[in-house]
Design a protein around this nucleic acid. Sequence first.
DNA 1: AAAAGTAATTATGAATTCAATATTCCTTTG
DNA 2: CAAAGGAATATTGAATTCATAATTACTTTT
Lengths: 227, 227
Amino acid sequence: MTKILQRNLYREVADRIGDLIEHGELLPGERISEKQLCDRFGVSRTPLREALKVLATEGLIELLPNRGARVVRLTLKNVKDTYDLMAALEGLSGELACQYISDAEIAAIRQLHDTMLEHYRNRDLMPYFQVNRQIHESILAASNNDVLQEMYSNLSQRIKRVRYSKKMTERYWSQAVKDHENMMAALEKRDSQLLGQILRDHLCNKIEVATLAGVIDTEDDKSAANS
Amino acid sequence: MTKILQRNLYREVADRIGDLIEHGELLPGERISEKQLCDRFGVSRTPLREALKVLATEGLIELLPNRGARVVRLTLKNVKDTYDLMAALEGLSGELACQYISDAEIAAIRQLHDTMLEHYRNRDLMPYFQVNRQIHESILAASNNDVLQEMYSNLSQRIKRVRYSKKMTERYWSQAVKDHENMMAALEKRDSQLLGQILRDHLCNKIEVATLAGVIDTEDDKSAANS
DNA sequence: AAAAGTAATTATGAATTCAATATTCCTTTG
DNA sequence: CAAAGGAATATTGAATTCATAATTACTTTT
């Protein structure tokens, strides 16, 4: 069943602006000029403004009445809140996955898991992260809960721009791998409660937040961000 | 019906359309006529179409390219998925609340709790539900996590139109009250793990889903819904 | 020179207009 | 009479235009 992907102009524009934010071409707190983006994308203001409203709903930008739009300025608390939420969603995905996942899907995740261990042994950080991500996505997909997946995806979008390849300390890395060993065991036993618990406690996200402390604003103030 | 002549027109219109959906004036699967709503609200198509796009992002309606918008048709699975998610979010709210809640806030919730028990003893269903809701909202507010609250609010919006005063069986009702006794105890001990667990397992939502089975479509098909 | 007030400019909010796609209704044909 | 085809109509998608609020630049005053 291939999903119908609707390609409206406004959705296209919204995605493009999302990319600009993710890649840092539009900076946090930066005022977004409608005219400038219209020229850049070659569209009129109508679909562009629709895109801005959608992006505001998705939490990537904020609209100030009569004063335009600006990229949301992520605070440390904001990112921490988001990660707490994502951890809870991952926990739920684990619980549900245990109920619905097929033997074949478990086998596929076991494959990924073993591959990840190989990358860990070789200390190949990037491939490790990539496979790690695939594992979590596979569990999420197996949860059989569309609403959950939609919400997780939205949260993921919001913080994409501050996710980066952090330098794992050996200690945290080995702990993360141990977590994954336990996850794999719980999944193969289909122990939903246990898998849920492990995923909620999985410290991967917590490390990221700690590392981010140096990267983004620590203040929570909403005061004007001048361009 | 008062016409709209206000600021943030698109947001106002979106809320009004949300109300129409909630109160059943716009039915699931029903085609939404732009012109009709424009006349009704006394606005042009521009803010109305912006509102439609926002509502689609919020999951209340769906847009079919070149074929207009329609109210999302909630399936039993869809509602169940949403409730599963909300239960997980409530669990997280409980965990976090234990960390951040003040003694005064706990006392206030204790007050609500006792009031609720009184309503239970008198079998006053409506007041019981109302106070029950306040308790859950208070815990959510105490979680100190804005992203969580925003997301919970969105999910709540989506299923508002199928929430109704269901007839509780005595058995389920007494169990729900017992759950609340345990919640209150866990909160007063600030036992975050326990409170989280109780809230996740709290069967209030599960009853609702069971009851809803007779009200909404059981089929999951996406086939055309004619007006 | 600094501050305040005001005109000029620019940007945003919303309505209207133009273009493309879908739907309806009527005619035609087997 | 049913089905197919096509013109007429209605609806949606997007650009443009008009109105209003905000910003800037400039003048005036102290």
